[in-house]
């Protein structure tokens, strides 16, 4: 009876229209939103490649008629902050000098702390951890001055070392959480087997935990690199002007009230400052996503 229906009627996949209302809505929305998201990047790039006369005449969205790299050169080597006119390069190198030790120290300390909290818990360790996590929610403003006092007592106030300490302190909650949560997923038997074999605290960490935890170290480093590079508040509060990181110097260049505003130089400087985190972002891809899904605690 039903056999008569065979070979007639619908067969195979449902016919699909590429331009179904659903797809138009879906991709249309995404494309419009994507354009809004890309717009600032585009404006930054085109502005930084125009000369000032062209900027004054044209509109900010039009591509440069005459491409010039002069603004980039000026932003890097000549732009003035106060009396210094050696460009953003000073801030860049300051940021690098802050970034490298800060990332190394904060990631090392956070990973070891996470290791303690996952495999070597002791009485009270969970309480300290809870306090640490709550600390992530304390507005920085509450702690700004107490930290100034601590640094002053240690003789580190205003120095780069002081800023490294500050980044280590404030990066701790999220990174410890990240490491702890990763380490608890490692098989406990492995840890037990190593202990039965007579390995101690450091041996287990270096020879067993580290080799298995590369991805989480990368995630933590991504969080720290972007976070520290983008920091403004700590840089302003805890360093002297000659040690100002790039973000602070950028703000001082762009928002300085003296002289004529050179928008092309400003945008080149802004792009230069954004280049490091953008590079990290575009090259790390999924790991960055993983980092912020966990790193959202940082606020």
């Amino acid at each position: 009876m039903t056999d008569t229906a065979t070979l007639t009627g619908p067969t195979g996949p449902r016919p699909k229209k590429a331009l179904s209302p659903r797809n138009i809505m879906l991709y249309g929305t995404l494309i419009v939103v994507s354009l809004y998201y890309l717009l600032p990047l585009y404006v930054m790039i085109v502005t930084s490649l125009k000369g000032m006369p062209e900027i004054r005449l044209g509109n900010i969205f039009s591509p440069p008629v005459e491409v010039t790299f002069q603004p980039w050169v000026k932003a890097w080597a000549e732009a003035c902050t106060g009396i210094n006119c050696d460009g953003l390069s000073r801030g860049f190198w300051n940021s690098v000098r802050i970034l490298i030790p800060s990332v190394l120290v904060s990631v090392s300390i956070a990973s070891i702390t996470g290791y303690v909290l996952s495999m070597w818990r002791f009485k009270g360790s969970e309480i300290f951890f809870a306090i640490l996590l709550l600390g992530a929610f304390i507005p920085y403003q509450v702690l700004l001055y107490p930290v100034v006092i601590v640094l002053r007592e240690l003789g580190l106030y205003g120095s780069l070392t002081g800023l490294v300490v500050v980044h280590t302190i404030f990066g701790m909650p999220i990174n410890v959480l990240l490491f702890r949560n990763y380490f608890v997923t490692l098989p406990e038997e492995l840890f037990k087997a190593a202990r039965v074999d007579g390995a101690g605290f450091w041996r287990i960490f270096v020879f067993i935990i580290l080799p298995m935890s590369l991805p989480i170290f990368v995630v933590s480093m991504i969080i720290q690199v972007t976070g520290i590079w983008n920091d403004f508040l700590f840089g302003v509060v805890y360093t002297r002007p000659e040690n100002y990181p790039m973000t602070v110097q950028l703000n001082n260049i762009v928002n300085s009230v003296q002289g004529v505003q050179e928008y092309n130089v400003n945008m080149a400087a802004t792009l230069l400052t954004g280049l490091v985190p953008l590079t990290v972002y575009f090259f790390s891809g999924k790991l960055f996503v993983r980092g912020i899904a966990a790193g959202a605690v940082k606020g």
Partner: peptide, 12 residues
């Protein structure tokens, strides 16, 4: 590809 019938109706 192919067809599925349920209770004699082509439901593909």
């Amino acid at each position: 590809g192919g067809q599925i019938f349920i209770k004699g109706h082509n439901v593909t």
